[in-house]
Design a protein around this nucleic acid. Structure first.
Length: 174
DNA sequence: GTTGAGCGTT
């Protein structure tokens, strides 16, 4: 019968369409601003995240771009995939994960222990498994979190930072 | 100024 047909939903090679795009192969010098400029051509964004190396603070060469609408993310995916950006050929795909792994809470994410006189412990349900199930498959859930973590709009002076010119400003004077 | 093939922390 046909029930054997593979359903590959969300496989790595073939992610489901989503409002979140992963952008890979970036130049280390491509910023969130640059990405925003490029990708907002296709529709309004709700966020852009370049992934930085924790240690060095530099870009890890990939990023996530969030669209408001899935149609726009489709457009962007098709048009921006393979595009050259800052000297690199970038790859764009629907993200398989939805958002950054929420930092380990280490605290109870559940209800506050409204201790009516209970022991000082956790009287409610603990949600220590909350990030266990979340980010890899929580297509529906992540949006709840998303808004809290959005950045505020950058300061106005951002707009004059266009790309830094290639020429070195300082030539080593002999 | 690193030459990658990569799905996530602030």
């Amino acid at each position: 019968p046909m029930s054997n047909r593979r359903r590959h939903t969300g496989s790595r090679a073939n992610p489901d369409p989503n409002t979140c795009l992963g952008v890979f192969g970036l130049s280390l010098y491509t910023t969130e601003r640059d990405l925003r400029e490029v990708f907002s051509r296709y529709g309004p964004l709700t966020g852009v995240n370049v992934v930085y190396d924790q240690r060095t603070g530099r870009s890890r060469g990939f990023a996530f771009v969030y669209f408001e609408r899935i149609d726009d993310s489709k457009e962007a995916m098709e048009h921006a995939n393979g595009m050259e950006l800052d000297g690199r050929r970038i790859r764009v795909d629907y993200s398989i994960t939805k958002r950054a792994h929420t930092p380990t809470p280490g605290i109870y994410m559940g209800r506050p222990t409204h201790s009516g006189g209970g022991g000082g412990g956790v009287s409610g349900r603990r949600r220590d498994s909350y990030y266990d199930r979340g980010y890899d498959r929580g297509y529906d859930r992540y949006e709840e979190y998303d808004y809290r973590y959005r950045r505020r709009s950058p300061s106005p002076y951002y707009s004059r930072y266009r790309s830094r010119s290639r020429s070195r400003s300082y030539s080593p004077s002999k």
